[in-house]
């Protein structure tokens, strides 16, 4: 597959959604020890693109996603979203940012067990500014028949698709997916990836998938390789493979 190293594939002429420079995150798990989870990351992310962030366990990819998603703040460096700084944002600003802008999909779904599929989605549509109906969001991920099922009554793939519906129901500008297929078998994983790809195409959402599964990279527009807190490589797929054709 032809690669273009360190290229933004013509995107550089547009204003980025995320603009990160020298992004650094240092943890001090105990006294003297210092862990540099991110170490001077420069990165621009653009509207409507589908990005896969590849890296091994401990490479810093979750830290990067958490900072992009407003769950964490960097120790050093700057991060802007649409020109607004997230670097020094307070708790309230970050909460509003997550609420209005970001959709999250997690490895372990994080659904509320006491609420049905529809209600888990309604949890978000209740507080979002311009949401779609929960039923519409669930239809987008192919769960229109499972509206009133509780998480315990759904399979893992179905639960993850509820989580995607929950993430997209607010029509977010950014969809951040942390190992969305990590707990799923291949077949189920593909249906989940298809759902993410559909949202990216239909709604024009910036979708970022972090994974250690290199096979998933083929469906991305751009693939970012992270290792030991550094971006080691960014390449652009000239041809994106549909999720349904992926194999791992």
């Amino acid at each position: 597959m032809p690669d273009t190293k360190d290229s933004t594939n013509g995107l550089e002429n547009r204003d980025p959604l995320f603009h990160a420079r020298g992004l650094t995150k240092v943890y001090h798990p105990s006294g003297e020890i210092e862990v540099r989870a991110l170490d001077g990351v420069d990165l621009d992310l653009f509207e409507s693109e589908l990005v896969v962030l590849l890296g091994a366990s401990g490479s810093g990819k979750s830290t990067l996603l958490n900072i992009l998603g407003g769950l964490d703040i960097p120790t050093d460096g700057t991060l802007d979203y649409r020109g607004e700084s997230l670097t020094d944002a307070d708790e309230r600003t970050l909460t509003l940012f997550r609420r209005d802008t970001v959709g999250f999909v997690f490895q372990f779904y994080n659904l509320i067990p006491s609420l049905t599929a529809r209600e888990n989605v309604a949890l978000i549509t209740d507080i979002a500014r311009n949401p779609m109906a929960p039923e519409e969001a669930l239809a987008l991920v192919g769960l229109e028949d499972r509206l009133d099922h509780f998480p315990a009554q759904l399979s893992g793939g179905e639960q993850q698709r509820v989580a995607i519906a929950r993430a997209i129901a607010k029509r977010p500008d950014v969809l951040l997916c942390d190992e969305p297929t990590g707990a799923l078998d291949v077949k189920t994983g593909i249906t989940v990836l298809e759902a993410i790809a559909r949202v990216n195409e239909d709604l024009g959402t910036l979708a970022m998938i972090i994974t250690h599964n290199a096979a998933i990279a083929d469906m991305a527009g751009r693939v970012i390789h992270l290792s030991a807190g550094h971006i080691t490589e960014i390449h652009t797929n000239t041809e994106r493979r549909p999720a349904s054709t992926l194999v791992w």
Binding site: E91, T95, R98, R99, D100, V102, N110, P113, I124, I127
Partner: peptide
């Protein structure tokens, strides 16, 4: 704890 933290991640304020 898990449900509540999830809600915070999803953009619920501390008060909510």
């Amino acid at each position: 704890t898990r449900d509540l933290a999830t809600l915070r991640v999803l953009g619920y304020t501390q008060r909510e």
